[in-house]
Design a protein around this nucleic acid. Sequence first.
DNA 1: GATGAATGAGCATTCATTCAT
DNA 2: AATGAATGAATGCTCATTCAT
Lengths: 196, 196, 196, 196
Amino acid sequence: MRHKEGNKEKDIIEAAIKCFAKKGYHHSKIIDIAKIANVAVGSIYVYYNNKEDILIKIFNNLWERLYFKITNIEKNSRLTPVEKIDTMIEDIFDAFIENPNLAIVFVNEQQYLLKLSSTLSNNFHKKYLDVGEIFIKEGIQQNIFSSEINSNIFRIFILGAIRNLLRYWADTPVKISLAKIKENVTYLIRNGILKK
Amino acid sequence: MRHKEGNKEKDIIEAAIKCFAKKGYHHSKIIDIAKIANVAVGSIYVYYNNKEDILIKIFNNLWERLYFKITNIEKNSRLTPVEKIDTMIEDIFDAFIENPNLAIVFVNEQQYLLKLSSTLSNNFHKKYLDVGEIFIKEGIQQNIFSSEINSNIFRIFILGAIRNLLRYWADTPVKISLAKIKENVTYLIRNGILKK
Amino acid sequence: MRHKEGNKEKDIIEAAIKCFAKKGYHHSKIIDIAKIANVAVGSIYVYYNNKEDILIKIFNNLWERLYFKITNIEKNSRLTPVEKIDTMIEDIFDAFIENPNLAIVFVNEQQYLLKLSSTLSNNFHKKYLDVGEIFIKEGIQQNIFSSEINSNIFRIFILGAIRNLLRYWADTPVKISLAKIKENVTYLIRNGILKK
Amino acid sequence: MRHKEGNKEKDIIEAAIKCFAKKGYHHSKIIDIAKIANVAVGSIYVYYNNKEDILIKIFNNLWERLYFKITNIEKNSRLTPVEKIDTMIEDIFDAFIENPNLAIVFVNEQQYLLKLSSTLSNNFHKKYLDVGEIFIKEGIQQNIFSSEINSNIFRIFILGAIRNLLRYWADTPVKISLAKIKENVTYLIRNGILKK
DNA sequence: GATGAATGAGCATTCATTCAT
DNA sequence: AATGAATGAATGCTCATTCAT
């Protein structure tokens, strides 16, 4: 009936992102995803072990891509710590600008995933955060960043802030541009709220 | 024991917070809550319309308390905008230090609630955010806060950051102290990451 | 709070008739009846054993009254069999004209009751039917009614017909008058559909 | 056995008729029907929307069949109005002789259904009654039936009578034959109780 | 690989009844 | 007698997963 050969796996994950974004993970039914993907229910289980597995793979794909980018940043010795963090933030925003539905799923369901994350063999999310923390430590060592900052707290602080802004952006019909948000985030992280 | 003793309603909501914190809202069964509250299943429906209603009331209670506190901050004309924001952050942390399970529920389920929040008659969360935004605008007017900051983005930024830190704190067995986290948050919000 | 002394039992049964008529027995809740009767839930169980008991007593009251009337008809030796049946039908209609809600409960729930009727100690319904059958047998003996008629079948035939007409009447917003219906019933029972 | 065998839908409806006949609609549990049909609970919901839907379809099937028969009677121009009504009654009795359980469900639950009947798209019951009324009007026009009879009242009268007799027949362990009942009904409708 | 009918464990909610006051 | 908060057994329905074709 349907033979876009070799695309089913991708079709399914894209359908799932759409569906999770629209209804949330818990309210998305396998049959909904199957319909959006134009695929039979059974076919989903050919490519994915179960519903949760789809969500895991959505996030793994995302963090894998971001991890690839952050390692490139890390390797680039010409960048200052400030530039590294700026670029890192830019990459995160770019990933979601490209796929706003993914942003919605990210902000809503990432939490649910973290409880399972320890079971992931390739935990790109963890690796990603570790590299991010390195940037901060570098900045502190080079006396650019304040030594009063705990790098661990900082990375959690910043990702939470970004996540909440993405959620807000994704949920708001009349959008503030992501560019504007990115600009504000960059400013706040660098300077905080006080005038210099 | 057939007559109102005046604490079942409270017992249930406290049991629900425990249960939601431990298993998450979607995986908490009514019978679980009933057992923890040492109450019959039917009794839950004497005090709450349904499962969702319990969650709604948990958050409404929380935001009502915080709203009460923030209005006191607002009325206090001796505080500078910086102090107002510091105190506001302190109040949020205090609320969760008092009840760490509430913090877990907050970070995990608030998202789910926001979709229903428009239906709440007394939306203390909304009111709370509005007062917070006023503080920022005051600071900008008084030329203490940078005018490059969008107050709306800032309040979303800051609450997302705090939420993520609370989640981290609540999930981590060996705790960084909330005091330490609060200190870092205050610093980051004031000064950002760069050295002054 | 409420002290119309000595009326509670009656209040409850009247409330139940209203409620059963409006929502049906199965969809009427004890608390609904309590509210209509302006009585506490527990009070209902002071006067009635359970929900079913209320329905049983509603019907028992009805058939007791009709049985009282039919025995008077039976005793009246001046009436011909035709007149006896006419009067019997008239009495049935009168009972329901007086209380249309009772008609609705009768047509909808009598069926449910019949399954329990064998358990009734004073089964006035059964006794009523037996007297009705006597009238028919008298008519046949006196060569007024056709001997082709089985008296048992006839009484079931006639009560079914009347019940269905009452149901129709009770359900129909723009009413055919019960008088008109009664007239037609009397005619049909006497003469059938064929012209004489 | 994972693929449609084409009889589950029928198995379920037949099981439901048996179950409703034995216990009544309200006391029949979905799991009871599933067991009788030798089918999983979930399978019932593959073919029917809900419990009520099963009942609706039982009646719709019945009235569709009867409607098919009555339209054939209507088309047959050789039949007199009396013969038409006779045949109509015969068809009703035949439908229930074929399936006595259906008769029990009919007499007990049709009432419940009438409240929903307006929502049915194909309301064969309504159409059936309309054709029946035409027969009566024809008979009155042709001066065969008494003009004192209201055709609307008559059709309600007759169906109520038949329903009650069927119920009696279905409930009575030692049966009067349906043939005997049919004979009496035909006589009563034609001639009433009085001797000619 | 692809399909979708079949499955059945799982759960929120209801409501008649009870009984301490 | 009167009350109404408390109870918990009972049930319709859902939906992720399976597997014969």
